[in-house]
Nucleic acid binder design. Structure first.
Length: 257
DNA sequence: TTGTGTTTTATTGCCTCC
DNA sequence: GGAGGCAATAAAACACAA
């Protein structure tokens, strides 16, 4: 527990009188010598009276004292006992007053530092928030674009499916002999009937959407199923219709192989 | 002049370190 | 256990609008 001792009162009195000196220096310039003396005596009476009454009224430090303390605080915000005593002596203050001033000054500095940190964090948060909003907008735009492209792709698939059906119907009537006259050995794996296969492939000369479609086989599989369902061709015959990567042949395409 | 909000000085109680 | 730091708080001093 820290308590004042008897020397503190004396130091307080010294502090008070020194404050008076500074104050008169600061405020009473420009008066006549007599008037100045009168003011000095009046103020001295006041201070002595206060001191005699044991008044413990707070007295603000003079500008000179505060400036000196601030300067020392900038050098080091902690006080070692030697520096405290030296400062107290230089500024006509109690060592305790110097210690208290530094303590309060540290508290003020800490508060300011917290405010600065808060400001920095707030600025960082706002910048980050802005970045996030921008990214979110870009993300939404990209999602919209993907949606549009998917819709477009669907349309193209539907269109091509219709055209395949129509073309196949036409082919069925035109090449009726092909499907009827052939027997199981008509289409052989030696690919002898190249010309007719070319014709057939022409029927399926689909719009080359290779640029759009990544995996043609998968994409066109439903069409293949429809063709099979309609019994337009045998399973073997329907093979390889969409293998546009190769020269049009009647090679069967077996994904397992 | 006065009420009110802010700043500064000082106290108190607790904690840590040597 | 004493010295010193810190947080919380009191109280005086100060600033300022009405």
């Amino acid at each position: 527990m820290k308590r004042f001792n008897s020397s503190d009162s004396l130091a307080a009195f010294i502090s008070i009188t020194s404050s008076k000196e500074d104050r008169t220096q600061n405020t009473n310039q420009g008066y006549s010598r007599d008037f100045q003396a009168m003011l000095d005596s009046l103020e001295e009476e006041d201070y002595i009276e206060e001191a005699n009454l044991g008044s413990e009224k707070k007295r603000r430090l003079t500008l000179h004292q505060v400036k000196a303390l601030e300067k020392n605080f900038e050098v080091d915000n902690k006080l070692v006992p030697e520096r405290k005593l030296k400062l107290a002596e230089e500024l006509c203050l109690q060592p305790r007053q110097v210690a208290i001033w530094f303590q309060n000054r540290r508290a003020r500095w800490k508060t300011k530092q917290l405010e600065r940190d808060y400001g920095t964090l707030k600025a960082n948060y706002e910048a980050l928030n802005l970045d996030y909003s921008n990214l979110e907008q870009k993300n939404e735009a990209l999602a919209q674009k993907v949606k549009e492209l998917k819709a477009k792709l669907r349309e193209e698939i539907v269109d091509s499916s219709h055209s395949v059906k129509e073309e196949c119907h036409v082919s069925e009537s035109d090449n009726h002999d092909f499907s009827e006259n052939k027997n199981s050995s008509a289409v052989t794996k030696d690919h002898s009937n190249v010309s007719s296969s070319n014709e057939l492939m022409n029927c399926f000369n689909l719009t080359d959407s290779r640029a759009i479609l990544g995996n043609r086989y998968q994409v066109y599989q439903p069409h293949l199923m429809k063709l099979e369902e309609q019994s337009l061709f045998s399973a073997e015959e329907s093979c390889n219709f969409f293998s546009v990567d190769q020269a049009p042949t009647l090679h069967c395409y077996f994904p397992e192989q």
